[in-house]
Design a protein around this nucleic acid. Structure first.
Lengths: 186, 186
DNA sequence: AAATATACTTACTAATTAGTAAGTAAAAAA
DNA sequence: TTTTTTACTTACTAATTAGTAAGTATATTT
């Protein structure tokens, strides 16, 4: 695959995660890469196309991460820790996560982008729900709620806290991360 | 105060909460109210001005809600329930909350709007932290974490879940609400 | 060596955006 | 009754937006 194409995808993702979908333009990308507006359209004919590709790339990344953890025979606790680390990394890089950045703009997205975003959220929640359920059965986790409720609360906490830490510097994300894990200790 | 001015504030808030700050325009407001673009500028010279006024209105609403609960001598449990009800109402109306809608766009907001949004989040977290702390001392709530961590988790869950329910219709917001409350039962 | 595909640029369009300056009709104040 | 204020409209501007059509230099294939 083309280097420019990959740079556009990466820059586009960063722009969504720092400015939001409706605030970034093809000009933002072209000027940053030192190419012309039309060159971006050469790789991604429309913004719909680019947005959808960015979400698809993220879905793939998530699938690869899960595959990798299964191959390395991570237990449930290790898997949850690895997942949370993604958000801690975003926090350090002063970026929101893609889901948190795109969700408020959902109504303004094109159909194909909506479909992929929905798919991505479904995938994460399904994986997290099953992880929590399995982990509780194996006595790696302990919690009262239904696994799907717990998954939603954990995912929501990670997503929204990331948004809030971008505004309130005093919030300690690592502390929050520890809180989530402590809460699941048997 | 002018009726048109109040209609603009209300419509503007709804537009932020359904489309996002950078996707709504003065045209959206003027055409909906059957007035001209320039009439909106008459009341709110700039979008910065309108955005800031909308956040200020919401701060005032929050302060009034707290005052009202104190006057009616609500205990900590009742106060938390009342607070959560705001989000359940938003859920039923298919709207996100203002904080969740504006936070991802924070970097694109004007200084004055940033200041007010930060003030609003600070206010809510401070109130919730103190409520949880007081409630635990009075044995109305039970939880292990530090009150500020718990406040952040609860607030984040409410904000982000509201965003996710707008995408995944199968998520049961009332169930989540119950989970949050159950988790605090002594 | 000729044909073709790749990776762009040049130069543009049509629509939308926030914002403004000047005018106006009706109500309120003097 | 005149003046002033309120609440707009008309008519516009300058900037930015996504997107396109046609051209071009370079690399690759035939």
């Amino acid at each position: 695959m083309s280097v420019t194409r990959e740079k556009i995808l990466e820059l586009g993702e960063n722009l969504i995660r720092t400015k939001g979908y409706n605030a970034f333009s093809y000009q933002d990308i072209s000027s940053e890469l030192g190419i012309k507006n039309a060159a971006v359209h050469y790789y991604f004919p429309s913004k719909e196309n680019l947005g959808t590709s960015i979400v698809k790339t993220n879905i793939q990344r998530f699938e690869e991460m899960v595959d990798n953890m299964v191959n390395r025979k991570f237990n449930e606790w290790q898997q949850l820790e690895t997942f949370i680390k993604i958000y801690v990394k975003s926090y350090r890089e002063h970026k929101k996560c893609l889901v948190g950045s795109l969700s408020p703009d959902y109504n303004t997205l094109n159909e194909t982008t909506k479909v992929e975003l929905k798919k991505m959220i479904e995938m994460i929640l399904k994986w997290l729900t099953e992880l929590l359920d399995r982990g509780r059965n194996n006595e790696v986790f302990a919690f009262k709620d239904a696994p799907d409720s717990k998954a939603l609360i954990i995912f929501s906490s990670l997503v929204a806290s990331l948004q809030l830490t971008g505004i309130m510097e005093k919030i300690d994300y690592k502390c929050l991360q520890q809180s989530i894990l402590d809460d699941l200790k048997p």
